[in-house]
Every structure is written in C-alpha cells, then in structure tokens.
Write a protein that binds this DNA or RNA. Structure first.
Lengths: 159, 159
DNA sequence: TATGGCCTTGGAGTGCACTCCAAGCAAGCG
DNA sequence: CGCTTGCTTGGAGTGCACTCCAAGGCCATA
C-alpha cells in the first residue's frame, strides 16, 4: 500500500481528483515492451480502459509475454496517443474503431481513411468555432459581473 | 402527418440526421410567450429535454397557460441559449444546475457565480488548446496520406 | 360530437463509455 | 512453503444525459 499509487488497479485518491491532472510520465527510450501498468502511467488511461479498448477492437491484439501478460510496443503507445487526441474531439469510440479496422485492412483503405480524417478535421474546426463563440458569451457575462450589473438585467436585455 | 415535422414530439427523420444541423428558426419579435413546440423549433432541443431541464431544476418553473401548458418567455429563451453554449463546452449538467440555483438565490451569490464563470472560461481555453493540438496532429497525418506515405511507416516513426 | 393535434405527468428505458468484480494464475521474496 | 503483488478473464454494474412510454386533458375544426 506504500508503493507508487499510480501503478495500481484502483481509483486515484478521490481527494486528488480536482487538484491535479493525471500527470503523464515520459516514456523511457530504448525500450519497446511495456507492461499495462507502465502504459497506465504514460497515458493516464486506466488498465480497465486499456483492456476494454482491446476487447472492442480499438487496439490491435497486443503482444503477450510468455505468461500471457500484455506487452505494449512504442507503436501501440503512439496509436494510444492518437486515440486520446481523437477522444478529446468528441469522436465516438465506434468511429475510432472503424478507423482502426481500416488500418488493419491494409493499403486499399487509404482513401477511406483519408476521408475520415478530413471529416474529423472539419468537425474539430467547427468545435473550435463553437468554443470561441461560447468564450465570447462568457467574457461578456463576466465583464457584466465585473461591472456589478445584475444578472437579472442581463437576462432581461434579451440575450 | 403532413404538418410541420419539426413541431412534433417524434424523432427527426433518420435520413436527415447527418445531412443537416437542426436549423434554428429565428424567434419572432414583439412576443413574450412561446409554446414548447415553438421553443423546440428555436433551440433544436427536444420537448423531452426541455421538460427534463425543468424537472432537474436547470430551468426555473416556466409560466403556464390557464390550461397548464408551458409558456416560455424571451428571458427563458435567453437562458436556454446560454445553457446550450455551456453544454458545448462539456460542462456537466449538474454544474449548470448549480449555476441556475445561484441565480435563483439572488444577489448575494454574485461572487460565486463570477468564479464559476471564470473557471468555465479557463476550461474553454484549455479545450481550445487541446483541439488545436489535435488539429495539428490531424493535419500532419492528412498530409502524410496526401503524400502517399504508408500508415505503417507513420506509426513506426514513433508518434 | 367526434376526430386529430398538441400538451401534460411520473416513471421506466436507452446508449455510451467506461468501471468494477470475482476467481484465478505466475513470479519474487523471506 | 506461503504471502504479496501484478496480471488475466468474461460478465455485470455505474453514471450521465437524455429518450420514450402510457394514460389522459384541452380545444379547434369537420
């Protein structure tokens, strides 16, 4: 119980949940085989989630040690980084699985993959625009608060 | 069944689901009382969702007609627009309810509301930064595809 | 006056993305 | 040898944000 808490299967301490983002360890060089708990430390994902990603076909079948334990390669970690980025865009997991399938199907899916990435790119641009919009609204509201104008009057003004 | 489809309780035609965003009607001027189906047309939310927002205390109690039907005011619509923007930021509904409660509690919650808005603002900035990051990754990947470089080689390159 | 359309309610159901559980195996250590 | 630690599995459970249902009220038009 005194060992590195980040390496266990359990929840992070609830008290930490708001105070710190899941700090990601840098991955060591010159190695191409990581246990699941190392990957947990690198990516901030839980071991549950990593196994689940494999079950649903988002990850390819991960290499195993002679005792059957997962050994992630640098390539797997690269793919995980990519997946994590896509997740931030709000892309559904099912779509990411679709992309992963295309990768596994080989070169003849090139066009489809490119399309998928480009449509994702458009979505990201849209989301950024929406967020900017929201930011403008927030800034306006915040400046009203700073000026001491009542919420009531703001609401009433028709926006 | 031949009347305006947007005004019914049912799903939009599944065939339309990808083709068009829920187009929002402009709200007519000089009026301060709208039925739930009008609000559906203005906001793109479903009637279910509107009633649910009220049940959980996200919306204040909406005015009723003499027959007990909801009549939304322009102020309610303004609040709904704001809520819709907050939703886009990924803010949990529970937090929005908290904000709504603060508004209802009156002027002495000014400070807390301002803080909440400012922390939301920081979150939005963070999300925009993440999305930009993701955009850069996508652009890199897309340009590799455009150059005909194999996915395999990209993955292998260590990113 | 009867039909259709829009509205009401509480409660139950859905889909997504995890998240956890119980049972069990393998390795390292005293 | 026994204990602890870390890992394995399939399947069940959780939390969020809706989403739908059944039963019924009101009211305008045919």
């Amino acid at each position: 119980m005194q060992t590195t808490p980040a390496a266990t299967e359990h929840d992070p301490n609830p008290a930490d949940i708001c105070s710190a983002p899941p700090r990601r360890h840098p991955r060591p060089d010159g190695q191409d085989s990581y246990t699941i708990s190392e990957v947990v430390a690198f990516t901030g994902l839980t071991a549950h989630t990593l196994r689940w990603y494999e079950r649903i076909g988002l990850m390819p079948h991960i290499d195993r040690s002679h005792t059957g334990q997962r050994r992630y390669s640098n390539r797997d970690l690269g793919f995980l980084d990519f997946v994590t980025k896509l997740r931030l865009t709000g892309m559904p997991v099912a779509d990411m699985v679709r992309y992963a399938e295309l990768v596994r199907e080989g070169d003849h899916t090139f066009g489809e993959r490119q399309e998928l990435l480009e449509s994702t790119r458009r979505d990201v641009l849209t989301r950024i625009a929406e967020l900017r919009d929201t930011l403008a609204v927030l800034d306006r509201k915040i400046s009203f608060y700073a000026d001491g104008v009542r919420e009531y009057e703001r609401e009433h003004a028709g926006c």
